Computed example of a mutant assay.
Amino acid sequence: MKYADEFRDKEIALGLAKAIRSEADSQRPYRFMEFCGGHTHAISRYGLEDMLPKNVRMIHGPGCPVCVLPAGRIDMAIRLAERPEVILCIYGDLMRVPGSQGASLLKAKARGGDIRMVYSTVDAIRIAEQNLEREVVFFAIGFETTTPPTAVVIRLAEKKRLGNFTVFCNHVLTPPAMQNILESPDIRNIGRVEIDGFVGPAHVSIVIGTEPYEFCAEEFGRPVVISGFEPLDMMQAILMLVRQVNEHRHQVENQYSRAVTREGNLRAKEEVSDILEPRDQFEWRGLGLVPYSGLKLKRTYARFDAEIRFGMNELRVADNPACECGMILRGVKKPVDCKLFGTVCMPETPMGSCMVSCEGACAAHWTYGRFRDHQQRRAS
């Protein structure tokens, strides 16, 4: 296949759906967690859940890097932006992510904070070069996909001898989060999150490869299938998971072989490992403190670390108690289980990060899934 339309062929999709229905044992459940916001949107956008038998259930995981960032880290960025000497460079979807007590970077900008949206890390370097009298901080965020550009920009800042450029590092790692979910399936007062397999992330896997997921199969007996983003990718990956469960296999399989290898992007991984290293622990919204799941700058590059330069203290604050974003990221609840969804919480007035980010489960369900809910209610 060469073109995107070929991965959206209706007849092939129906054929895959038929195969899933025929091979899925009606006497048992199949519970698969997708670990990528792009997959969550593909499922909602193309109505893939409607094509699956009722006993094959997709569970939304913490696959949105903006969503999993805890409110305390947003508060830390807001305090940084309030400093008169600082220009804070961020990606646009961070602007409206709620901090504590309804605070956000958008509101901080309205109060006079110099917060500038950028499209790449290099944009932040240009701003630093143009404002040598100011401190320019890049708010680095994302899974392994966006980590290499952060490593590259730190090396570039070193090469240019920029003394006014630092990075507020909030990069997180996928495999430790998967391990956390498998090790802690019981949620107090809510129940148990049962997972029979994972749809592995696409862009992340292009960078790190398939090897880092092998612990899921070897230690926890859960199959992982790396999948592309198109509807045929997703349907084929689900069929591959169904077959593994039926055959009592637990392996890492690569559906997205046109882009992903076992080793991943060796150059990108080398660049990251030269400049960044794991933190002892990092807080995730919905998961709490997860060991070795976040990255920080190595001591050699400490002069580019905003947390060190500005003496930033780690903040841990409670989420809005009415918002179920944490439980949605954990796979315990769905967007419609939150009483704020579609009432006070909408894309124009988000109460939680899952509605803010374009990769969030609530945003996906608002854009696509709520119409299906309406049709189902009318049918019943």
Rank of each mutant, 00 (worst) to 15 (best):
V336Q: 10
C358A: 15
F341I: 01
C345Y: 05
M346E: 12
I328R: 00
E307A: 14
L329V: 04
G360N: 06
N313R: 15
I308W: 03
M355H: 05
V317N: 09
L329G: 01
D305T: 06
I308C: 07
C325A: 10
R299Y: 03
Y292A: 11
M346N: 15
E314V: 11
K296I: 06
R330C: 00
D337M: 00
R303N: 13
P350G: 04
A322H: 14
C323D: 06
E359I: 08
R316A: 11
A318F: 00
R309K: 15
Y301T: 01
K296W: 09
T349D: 03
C354H: 05
T343V: 01
E324F: 08
K339W: 04
M327N: 14
G331H: 06
E307W: 02
C345R: 03
G294H: 02
T343K: 03
F304R: 14
D337R: 05
K339G: 06
V336C: 09
G342C: 01
Y292E: 15
V317P: 07
V356A: 10
G331F: 02
F341D: 01
K339D: 14
D319P: 12
D305E: 10
L297E: 09
N313L: 15
L340W: 11
F304M: 07
K333P: 09
E359W: 11
A306G: 13
S357K: 13
N320T: 02
G294L: 12
R299D: 09
P291D: 12
E314I: 14
K334V: 06
T300K: 15
G326Y: 02
G331I: 00
E348W: 02
C354F: 05
R299C: 00
C358T: 15
M355Y: 00
C338V: 04
M351T: 05
N320E: 03
N313W: 08
E324I: 03
K333S: 01
V336I: 14
T343A: 00
G288T: 02
Y301D: 05
E314S: 09
V344W: 05
C358N: 14
V344H: 10
V344P: 02
L289F: 12
E359F: 11
L329N: 10
K298S: 04
A318R: 10
R303D: 14
M346I: 13
V344S: 14
K298D: 04
V356I: 07
A302V: 15
A318G: 09
K333I: 03
F304N: 09
L295T: 07
L289I: 06
C354T: 07
M346C: 13
F310W: 05
V356Y: 05
R299E: 13
K334T: 06
L295A: 10
I328A: 01
R303M: 13
R303T: 13
P291Y: 07
L329D: 08
V332H: 05
R303L: 12
F310C: 08
A302P: 10
M312T: 09
